[in-house]
Amino acid sequence: MIEHLQRYLDESIKELELTGIKREAAEIRFHFNKMYQGISVIDHTYEVIVDTGTGEVVGMSGSFGQQATSFPDPAKAISKEAAEATMKKNKSLALAYIWNGTADMQPLLVYHVNKEKGIETSIEAITGAVLEGVQEKR
């Protein structure tokens, strides 16, 4: 499967990260991110679809045909701690109630940071669990 995908990738792509597998009735979908120097390139994703009966690749989609580019040097990056401190300073956490599809249809109390398009990362205020990609229902 990787060999099939590599035929269509830019020659500069040397690393891929398997980010998910979704099984459906007659197929399995494998999701990959491009990586560079061990770091995920979030907006360069690929999907390979394999027929479960034959094991053959029946489809692919993704960031094919994108030009090679130069990446910033990760050695020059600020520390994770500095990034977290900046985030806390610029994006204050606020208590909120959200509906998170719980079986008992009860809201969760969370600390959250607003992000684009209603998607946010939240911390469940009672347990401290991180809830990523929570969709606000409006």
Results as ranks from 00 to 15, higher is better:
residue 113 V to L: 11
residue 16 L to Q: 00
residue 37 Q to S: 14
residue 114 N to S: 14
residue 108 L to C: 03
residue 62 G to H: 04
residue 85 A to H: 11
residue 107 P to Q: 09
residue 98 I to E: 06
residue 39 I to M: 00
residue 75 A to E: 10
residue 49 I to L: 05
residue 54 T to W: 01
residue 48 V to F: 01
residue 47 E to M: 14
residue 84 E to L: 15
residue 50 V to M: 07
residue 34 K to M: 07
residue 34 K to Q: 10
residue 49 I to M: 04
residue 57 V to D: 01
residue 79 S to W: 05
residue 106 Q to W: 02
residue 112 H to N: 09
residue 21 I to E: 06
residue 53 G to Y: 09
residue 53 G to T: 13
residue 73 D to E: 10
residue 43 D to S: 08
residue 105 M to R: 02
residue 101 G to P: 06
residue 28 I to L: 04
residue 21 I to C: 05
residue 48 V to R: 01
residue 42 I to E: 05
residue 21 I to H: 00
residue 84 E to Y: 15
residue 21 I to V: 12
residue 100 N to R: 00
residue 31 H to E: 10
residue 98 I to M: 11
residue 67 Q to H: 09
residue 16 L to D: 00
residue 90 N to E: 14
residue 83 A to Q: 04
residue 84 E to Q: 13
residue 96 A to C: 10
residue 32 F to T: 05
residue 108 L to M: 13
residue 20 G to N: 06
residue 49 I to D: 01
residue 64 F to L: 06
residue 42 I to R: 02
residue 100 N to A: 14
residue 44 H to I: 01
residue 107 P to T: 15
residue 90 N to R: 13
residue 104 D to A: 10
residue 33 N to R: 04
residue 94 A to Q: 11
residue 30 F to L: 15
residue 29 R to N: 12
residue 26 A to M: 08
residue 112 H to E: 10
